[in-house]
């Protein structure tokens, strides 16, 4: 049984890319790549899964349970969504991570904030830094740390490396791979760079104008003769495109 199953999901989104008939499944501990060029609807799929957009059709199942029957707050604690440009809350990095605990009426135990930061790839010294002063890459990791404080089963990451230099991006990807492997989290990685996806995911799907263009093993997708896939993989190999924002 897959941890997350998305079945024929559709969303008509005013002011953003609409999607139709999107289906995929992700197992515990797996990184699944949701790929596509800018404006293809990748972000819309993630936003619809966590209920930021209303699904016009289809179903999302978490451990075989229809998420529309769950309380939205429960859904979002189990399925964490980290936006492409995460917004920091007021205060320090520790305040940001503690906020997740506060929402559940709890307080972090001694050293728990630092341990979450470490899992997101940040040293303990970051805890006392003002969150507003962080770089894009650091914000991404703080956003992952505060999402992990909910002990989510699924992590939806929207272009987590889009604002990072190649070296930092590599470290973040490795961190994501470890989170999936060691904590058994199902990760959906949205990216417009198939080469990057191939480094940590085996399976994925490519979206084109809101529809699934191809899905399956990433190696076979890369080798496909299908014109859209050839163009998509060739563009990534030829140089980075601009990151997708608020599709």
């Amino acid at each position: 049984m897959p941890l997350l199953a998305v079945k024929a999901l559709g969303c008509r989104r005013a002011g953003g890319a609409s999607v139709k008939g999107v289906s995929f499944e992700v197992d515990a501990g797996e990184v699944f790549a949701l790929m596509g060029p800018s404006g293809s609807g990748k972000t819309t799929v993630l936003r619809t899964i966590v209920g930021f957009e209303e699904a016009s059709e289809g179903q999302v199942l978490l451990e075989n349970r229809d998420v529309s029957e769950m309380a939205v707050t429960e859904l979002r604690r189990n399925v964490a969504f980290v936006a492409q440009e995460p917004v920091m809350l007021d205060g320090t990095v520790a305040d940001n991570v503690s906020y997740t605990f506060e929402l559940r009426g709890e307080r972090p135990a001694e050293g728990q904030v630092e341990s979450l930061l470490a899992r997101a790839g940040l040293p303990a010294e970051f805890a006392t830094r003002p969150a507003e002063e962080l770089s894009s890459g650091e914000r991404q990791r703080v956003a992952i740390a505060r999402a992990l404080a909910n002990r989510p089963k699924v992590l939806l990451l929207d272009e987590p490396t889009s604002a990072l230099d190649p070296e930092t991006a590599e470290r973040v990807l490795e961190g994501i791979r470890q989170l999936a492997k060691e904590d058994g989290i199902a990760v959906v990685l949205v990216t417009h760079k198939p080469q990057e996806a191939s480094r940590i995911a085996q399976r994925g799907l490519a979206l084109d104008s809101g529809r699934v263009a191809a899905a399956g093993d990433l190696t076979s997708l890369a080798a496909s003769d299908e014109p859209f896939l050839r163009r998509f993989f060739a563009e990534d190999a030829g140089g980075d495109r601009e990151g997708e924002s608020n599709e």
Binding site: E85, V87, Y99
Partner: peptide
């Protein structure tokens, strides 16, 4: 104006009222 801030809180499991609190 603060859509990102509100959605960041909602994504962590905040209720509507809690996300809008500030």
């Amino acid at each position: 104006r603060q859509r990102g801030r509100v959605e960041a809180a909602l994504a962590l499991g905040a209720s509507a009222r809690r996300a809008a609190e500030p």
